[in-house]
Nucleic acid binder design. Sequence first.
DNA 1: TCGGAAAGCGCC
DNA 2: AAAGGGCGCTTTCCGA
Length: 549
Amino acid sequence: MHVALSRSGPALTAVELEDDGRELRRWELDDGGLTEFVREQEPRHPRWVWNDTSTWYLPLLAAGVRIERCVDLRLSHRILRNAASTAGSELATSPRDGWDRPTPAGRGASDALFELEPPSADDNPVAEWMRQRAAVEGSTQPGRLALLLAAESVGALIAVEMRFAGIPWNPERHDELLTELLGSRPAPGARPARMEALLAQVREALDEPELNPDSPVELVKGLQRAGIRASSARSWELKRIQHPAIAPLLEYKKLSRLHTANGWRWAEEWVHDGRFHPVYVPGGVVTGRWAADGGGALQLPSQVRGAVIADPGWTFVVADASQLEPRVLAAMSGDAAMARAGQAQDMYQGMVDAGAVETRPQAKYGMLGAIYGGTTGESGRMRPRIERAFPVAMAYVENAARAGERGEVVSTWLGRSSPPGHGDAYDETASDAQLRQSRSDARSWGRFTRNFVVQGTAAEWAMCWMGSVRRRLWHLGGGDEADAALTARPHLVFFLHDEVIVHTPAALAAEVEAALREAAAEAGRLLFGAAPVEFALTVAVVDSYDQAK
DNA sequence: TCGGAAAGCGCC
DNA sequence: AAAGGGCGCTTTCCGA
């Protein structure tokens, strides 16, 4: 059962659809009636069809209404517009229209969390839904694409739910952590005491009393005047230099980053009532990974994770998928030897035990090099051995790289396609320098497409995993019969590419862990069927995030 | 004065 | 000669 929601000015329309798109019933509503309508219909388990999940769902959640499933038409449209397997569809060949507009930004401080604009008017969702169904059914891989759209849509629900719930954040502990590292909070515009002290050491050691360490240009000039040959102000370059100014300078830069990105000002903007409410952007990255729009949820530094503290009587279950991308590559390429190495809880150790390489770091850098296209350092040295041990997997990523170099489009396992390549950027009149540049650009694009197929498929696995986790957690909390709100049950509060945090009553932690593991296995089956690849999780039950790992 | 690019670094 | 993928955020830099 599907119910499409749309808005025309102040009027809302709900249309119940037969599976073939025929209209069964129609309701005319207003904003005040929407919440009650959805609440009444939800026990029938409709799939809500709407333009953008965040605009419709956030107000519903705020009113205490949680839904089971939806179709996010705009996210789906974007996938189908670009997918190689739907290139001939009416959707993909028609001119760009309103459905090609970007998802409305959820930007803004969480003060405005419940003061969002109401859902905006848009083109007819029923017609768009039919167009999308036709594109999927006419594609070369309808089953996979349908799964991708379902996973993307449940991801959109989860993103809104996590923003709504927020991640428990203890402002006092955050302030303590900052004070331990930086000194007490300085006046606006002033440097914290610890940074000021380090800066004095740097200036002294360089004999540069006016040095401005925050300007890379000034910093490099100052270093050079002191006889230090540095071509940039990057930490990795400075680390190689023997000079008394370097250690305090590196420490200064580290603290400066913390102070500006996740310091007191950040907390004032993003943490309210003991919760950090980041804005997630499903599908915000070309590969299908999520992005964040404000708050920096995907870059939360380890220094402040100790401020993520569970509520009294509650705890966190932190789970990350171990070596997700190598496992995904083993499954999608069908590399049996690599899959065998993945039978181990620690796949890199499994690669050592299989005799592919000698040490765990060699396995790790070798694999990352294979997936990223690295040719230097340890990953470059390991390349021949990885190729010998896992020829099928390596051929898979090499093919993706060569396709990208030729300007071709590549696709993930479920059918998300890469952006169009550059094609031949030169002709017979090109100079040697232009030819070199062109070949370099092609190789660079090849590294992108090589990584795209793996990173994008890993994102698909993660979305299937989370969708399954979400469903299981809801039932753990009593399912539809229970009256408890989303945040009164075990619920997802954080997601970071291959890692989730569940906030749960402590008594349910063991069941949550089991649900996470079952969901990981389910995601593997959903994507890859009976492929003999295991998706191992590392799980920790902790009261604060810094205790995980 | 403003806005975009670049630099640098945090996460995976 | 160049030689590792994807992002977001903050500050500085620089030109319109």
